[in-house]
Design a protein around this nucleic acid. Sequence first.
DNA 1: GATGAATGAGGCTTCATTCAT
DNA 2: AATGAATGAAGCCTCATTCAT
Lengths: 204, 204, 204, 204
Amino acid sequence: MEARDGTDGRRGADGAKQRRRGNTRQRIQDVALELFAEQGYEKTSLREIAERLDVTKAALYYHFKTKEEIIVSLFEDLTKPIEDLIDWGRRQPHTLETKKEIIRRYSDALTAASPLFRFMQENQATVRDLRIGQMFKNRMLGMRDIIVDPDADLVDQVRCVSALFTLHAGMFVMRDMGVDPEDARGAVLEVAIDLVTQAQHGSG
Amino acid sequence: MEARDGTDGRRGADGAKQRRRGNTRQRIQDVALELFAEQGYEKTSLREIAERLDVTKAALYYHFKTKEEIIVSLFEDLTKPIEDLIDWGRRQPHTLETKKEIIRRYSDALTAASPLFRFMQENQATVRDLRIGQMFKNRMLGMRDIIVDPDADLVDQVRCVSALFTLHAGMFVMRDMGVDPEDARGAVLEVAIDLVTQAQHGSG
Amino acid sequence: MEARDGTDGRRGADGAKQRRRGNTRQRIQDVALELFAEQGYEKTSLREIAERLDVTKAALYYHFKTKEEIIVSLFEDLTKPIEDLIDWGRRQPHTLETKKEIIRRYSDALTAASPLFRFMQENQATVRDLRIGQMFKNRMLGMRDIIVDPDADLVDQVRCVSALFTLHAGMFVMRDMGVDPEDARGAVLEVAIDLVTQAQHGSG
Amino acid sequence: MEARDGTDGRRGADGAKQRRRGNTRQRIQDVALELFAEQGYEKTSLREIAERLDVTKAALYYHFKTKEEIIVSLFEDLTKPIEDLIDWGRRQPHTLETKKEIIRRYSDALTAASPLFRFMQENQATVRDLRIGQMFKNRMLGMRDIIVDPDADLVDQVRCVSALFTLHAGMFVMRDMGVDPEDARGAVLEVAIDLVTQAQHGSG
DNA sequence: GATGAATGAGGCTTCATTCAT
DNA sequence: AATGAATGAAGCCTCATTCAT
């Protein structure tokens, strides 16, 4: 019922294109994401990735043109669901019910790709200079346009923005405080929904 | 009547210690902070700092033993008010009124040292490996112990945590959205106080 | 009635040897020569050649054992007429008339293979270390032995040598100065013939 | 009476600027020029230069920002006399006598910096992509404007151009043919002067 | 007749750091 | 209080080449 191909489900997005006999490309992505999330982008060298995979650095370059392309490919593969979600949200009426649904699904999407989002959050300065910086910003603006009502009170706007990065950062922080991930998730989601709900009432 | 030394007032914290005849140490800190905040820690090289100051890299080493020491010194100088605030908070009863006061003063402190906090936020992966990582974490735990009631409902705990990083991130985000900094600050503060207030009521 | 194979006629020299069904070998040579002439030998990578042809690098290795072999094959194919010319010249009496005829035909041969000669001229340092370096040198010595009279006055010897590289370099330079190629060719040829003529009279 | 500082005279041009206690910068230039002339630019690695000098590669980067800057510095230092010569030539009437004088002095200048010019000649493809490519081209155009009369017969124009690269290439070629350098120089110079003289009479 | 995948060597460059002066 | 000169380690990347399929 889950992860039907034994690869944590993330191959679903791009179809069969890259299912070469060897699966090195995929393995590079997996190891890279793990190391990027753990140590940061700049402190993870291609040498290190290659060593973990027991291939040479040059092999990485067979699969990716640059170091940046590795992270870009991860971002593209893993944030497809979010892109879809935003597209969906744009076409809905921006009611409270829609917003709550968006928040719920967004929370799911973040959880599914949590190493990537941990990475994005902890490497903002780096990410800003990479191609994914702009991509990420655009997605965030997309979310904002759905969640935040530009005519609302400034305080209510902050509530909505706060809901978003409560989702982004909340889970990691609570986890670091020793709370069970599943519990943390539920509590964070509740607070986020609460925030947008209050925002709606305030402006309504 | 203000900023008696022409350096935006930030020398106030550490007293006369470093007020040597030359002010190079200070200038190094200023330039370093600017560049760290703008580009990140790893992407800012000592060469770059030295060039901006029109001194040699070796001069930096006269004033600081390592690159890390520069950021440590900035952290220590600029977060003294927060340390004091936590010390104060610890000695107060953990009432809602105290918490609100803490939030208010914390907001002031963040604003006063906003480039540093922008830096901390955007370079978390890097900061984690530096000495300031632990320092910062300890401060955050100190704040948490004052603001968050461990016996409270998990959701209310999240509310408090969320209040804290709403303060941390909120101002930067709102500013990036084109809101006037002073307005942003007020709105962010209001949301944060709201969150701890709700938390208190929930658990009360 | 001309260029019976649609490839500007240069296949004429080596006969049927390489007329396999596919024409990849030929296409590799054409693209390689173009790029070598344009960018130089070292700055042209096999990747680049392969990409232009929309084949893989490995395909190049099916047709040529090494990168060097590509340039060697070009040299051999394209300088066959010059080799023949030298063989012919050797068997003639070294009269002024013969020399003039050699110069004329040499000019034709250079024109026919001008990208190769442009390449040879602009990559002398590289060529020296390749197999074609020695081949080329031998050809030049062959020409010299026909054109230059070793008993002649040193100045006259220089005249003859100068005639040769006036031919080699002259056309490219004049073309770069915006002169019509056909005109340039004529003028260059006249100066070269003049030089050997003067040399003959001087030593006679 | 010559080379008053034991460094073959080439320090004369840039004055005392770089006469540091250590003379590493100068030694880098010397070794680099030797290797560039011998093996070509691309085939000479910074590792090789550093090893010959028994310093690390990083030391090279203390003195020169890039590999290209090494060759640029050599070009600038060593072709100063030619630049001066062109400036002088521009201010003279373009009579035959002036042209002959230019040719003579140019020959001297080439001889003085012959390794550099050997390098330029044998690495044209490379040089074209470096900053010195344009510099060199500009100098050549400067010479051309003095030596070549644009109203003259095309053949006479070729004579003048031919005179120039007879000077450039002649010496190296004759030397390779086993002729005494001093004799070669004289003969080459005579042919070059002859060519411009003929050109003048033709158009006069 | 060609590809996909990989390698080993080596390229240029940058960095934090040191130390004698 | 600072400089000039240098180092060692490491970074990203590219190349010609190989080989099983």
